[in-house]
Amino acid sequence: MNSIEIKNVSYQYQPNKPVLQEINLTIKKGEWVTILGHNGSGKSTLSKLIIGLLKPKTGEINVNGIPLTQETVYDIRQKVGIVFQNPDNQFVGVTVRDDIAFGLENLQIPREEMIERIETYARKVNVLEYLNKEPHALSGGQKQRVAIAGILAMHTDIIIFDEATSMLDPKGRNMVLETMKQLRHEGKTIITITHTMNEALLSDRIVVLKDGRILKEGSSQTILKDKTTLEKSNLEMLLPLKVLYDLEQENYTNKRIKDLLWELSLNV
């Protein structure tokens, strides 16, 4: 079954300045896909289209088999959650508890069930002890995990991470990455939008965007070593692969080291 089907989608904010052109992309249920691209490649616009915050100029989007339209958008938003870049600009509640409750209140979930869900998902992302805390008492990583709990509590099955780790310090980033791995384990469909290779590596498939078009698409392993594609889209190869590439340029022969570098690049 497909979680998301994007068919021939284009979008522009201003006339004659297309941000996305002829995007075709299918994401299966339980798959983890990375959308990789430089600043301004249109990757954040794509996430806003999927969740219906923007309406495609042409083409269509299906979520869980339902076409995204004016009528279905509210149902679809129950199925798709999104974690944005800036932790401060998506924290709606005055406390962690209120913030996780926000989406549930919108879905008109009865109070008793809300209390139950808040506890379940706060525990899941490890913020249970902060339920009564205000946002300014939390670190960036903690705020992002509260956002994840808020989405999970709505029983969404597709989660988009729109550069959700880019404003965090290494510790906060690792916290969020751990939570992502856990979500994959539970069979959620995950879309990460990033320009960091270490993050892309965790996913099953990578879609490289450049200037609003899909430049290349393939399994993480093939894209990671595709030097030309990465260079074309202002991205950086992982270090072990860079070293491997340089060694191959110089006709380096030690197969053991070459195999090792390849292996290491897959578990950075």
Partner: peptide, 8 residues
């Protein structure tokens, strides 16, 4: 450099 892509 926070938030910039590798090239930037």
């Amino acid at each position: 450099t926070s938030g910039l892509d590798p090239m930037g």
